[in-house]
Computed example of a mutant assay.
Amino acid sequence: MYNITIITGARPNFMKIAPIIHVLQSAISSGKSLDFRLVHTGQHYDKNMSGSFFEQLNIPKPHANLGCAGGTQAEQAANIMLAFEKELLNHKPNLVLVVGDVTSTLACTLVAKKLNVKVAHVEGGIRSGDMTMPEEVNRIVTDSIADYFFTTSQLANENLLTEGKKESQLFLVGNTMIDTLLKNKSQFKSPEVWDNLKLKPKSYIVLTMHRPANVDAERDLKAMLIEIIKETREVPIIFPAHPRTRKILLNLNIENERLHIIEPLSYLEFNYLVHHAKAVITDSGGITEEASIMNVPCLTLRNNTERPETIYLGTNELVGTNPKNLKSYLDRLFKGQWKQTQSIPFWDGNTAERIAEVIINKLMIK
């Protein structure tokens, strides 16, 4: 029996593991000699940041929840490592599967490798070149010691080859987040704010900001919000705020009848809003992927991106972190001059099947 431990911990992970679990469940039902154990580190514990995703995406209850919530990044990583070491000693698999670039990804990779367990990194090889981002540090360290890499693009493969990985370790499979998006698109449902504000398609903007570089300095965050309000004409701005961001927003005293700060939304509700939005303004890498596939204009409040395909082939533009940059992009948006998305190779809804095929036909026989 080939045993796989799948790691999840934070909101971005849930969309990435769901299709993999569903495909593995099908393989097991068809008689394949494999099994999996789902381990939730507990990095995100809020109902809307975690619980509702499991329900809506039909993710089974984790076999273990390590309960490692809160604290600084170092404290959280240390707590995850201590808890996951005990988990792995009690349930040692053939393979640990980590996804994305959150603290859980890095911490569990370190533990697995120290216990001589092979690690496969889903979404390996993507790079922003910005070492001030915790996610970039997580990616680079994870990829430096992982054994196998399921990649989203040829550029990710090239990054890994440049860093010394072998072609035999790399598997270009696509993007599991898009598997989840396409599978669930017909089930998107309107959130309360849709009816409460009587929103109409293409008549509002969705805003998300959570990165420390954008939200930790109150003065900078306030300047960005003021500019967004100023340059978005008369359309409502819907801002589902991360709990951490919401605390900072309370100190800013920005009140505007068009700015609606709401609680985080479930997966199906949030993507309903994005799907029908005039545009998305965000600093999230994952949202740029989803917006591009849904052909929704996306303005990214960052100076770099680890997902360049969303710019070359998608609807994303890098606006940067200077609020004054917004005007020219929003002028273009309101003039109806935004680019249309093109086909992104392997982002077709079949990524999880390709991952399972590699595991069954290549990794299980090693």
Rank of each mutant, 00 (worst) to 15 (best):
N256F: 00
Y267F: 15
S168D: 07
K230D: 07
Q187W: 08
K185H: 14
M294D: 11
I205L: 15
S292Q: 12
E263A: 14
D216H: 02
A291M: 09
L197R: 14
I262G: 08
L199E: 04
T176D: 04
Y272V: 07
K247H: 10
H242F: 11
H275N: 14
S266E: 05
L273P: 01
N175E: 14
I281C: 08
E234S: 14
L265K: 14
V280M: 10
M224A: 09
E234N: 14
L181Y: 06
T208N: 10
H260P: 00
R244N: 05
S203Y: 03
A213D: 00
R219S: 08
L250P: 08
G286A: 09
Q169T: 01
Y272E: 02
K247W: 03
N271Q: 00
Y204E: 08
V173C: 14
V206S: 12
L225P: 08
A241N: 11
V235F: 07
E192L: 15
I248P: 02
P212E: 06
P236C: 13
S203L: 04
L252M: 05
L221D: 00
I237A: 07
E290W: 02
R246H: 12
E192N: 12
T180I: 04
A241L: 12
K200Y: 06
R246I: 07
L170I: 12
N175S: 06
F188R: 13
D283W: 01
S186P: 06
L172R: 06
N295W: 05
I248E: 00
F239V: 01
R233P: 00
E218D: 05
S168Q: 07
F171L: 09
L268V: 07
S284H: 09
S168V: 00
I262K: 11
S284K: 03
R233D: 11
K200R: 11
Y204R: 15
G174W: 14
P264I: 03
D283P: 15
H275M: 10
T208C: 04
K222Q: 01
E227N: 02
N271C: 00
K200W: 00
K202W: 07
L268K: 15
P212A: 08
I238Y: 15
I287Q: 05
K202G: 04
S190A: 15
E289R: 12
R219D: 12
T180Q: 11
I205C: 14
A277H: 00
